[in-house]
């Protein structure tokens, strides 16, 4: 039952199959049958397939890295990023490895892949790591007693401006109308 602690870190091991199953459920009458023992698997959603401009080295192999802050040029100037993560001392190579642009670098200098972004995020935000590991923080899709997929930090928080965005709500509920047994007045 230590499924939450023995997390499967293999990158890209299992795609979002569990997530897909959760929404397109197959309905079968199971009346009267005993509850099945299900193997509890918690996987982490891989990130690399979702990155449109990955690998970064396809461009950065021909450019010299600049460790100092400067205005962004070319592609990054066109893509108007909202950089509101941390204070003004932050720079790309705080999190992206200057030696290998296809890797991330944690606060302690360890290289991690884009699929393990949670290791990078929690190298500063350590309080969230425990919550996330126990399933108290973050999205989990799948089955409550079966295979589950955990979404990593960047699934909800854009690393460059991590605050969850404001979104449009569903429509307001109808105000209460006086009703009679014959319908609305």
């Amino acid at each position: 039952m230590s499924h939450l602690r023995s997390l499967d870190w293999r990158r890209g091991a299992i795609a979002l199959a569990a997530a897909g199953l959760a929404t397109s459920c197959t309905w079968e009458p199971r009346r009267g049958e005993p509850a099945e023992e299900k193997e509890l698997v918690v996987t982490i959603e891989p990130r690399i397939p979702l990155l449109a401009t990955y690998p970064c080295s396809s461009c950065h192999a021909t450019r010299t890295p600049q460790p100092e802050r400067h205005p962004l040029k070319e592609f990054h100037a066109v893509r108007t990023f909202d950089f509101s993560h941390g204070d003004d001392t932050f720079w790309c190579y705080q999190c992206h490895s200057i030696r290998n642009l296809d890797q991330l670098v944690t606060a302690t200098g360890a290289l991690v892949s884009f699929d393990e972004a949670q290791k990078l995020c929690t190298s500063c935000h350590g309080d969230k790591l425990d919550d996330w590991k126990r399933g108290m923080h973050g999205l989990i899709v799948g089955e409550w007693n079966g295979p589950r997929t955990k979404l990593s930090c960047p699934a909800c928080h854009n690393p460059h401006h991590p605050r969850y965005p404001t979104i449009e709500p569903e429509k307001m509920p109808e105000t209460i109308k006086p009703m009679t047994p014959f319908g609305a007045k």
Binding site: W27, K38, G138, N145, L151, C156
Partner: peptide
């Protein structure tokens, strides 16, 4: 939920 799935409100919540 008695078939192992999460409730609808859980699954749709974008914020976790």
């Amino acid at each position: 939920t008695r078939r192992g799935m999460y409730p609808a409100c859980y699954e749709v919540c974008p914020t976790g």
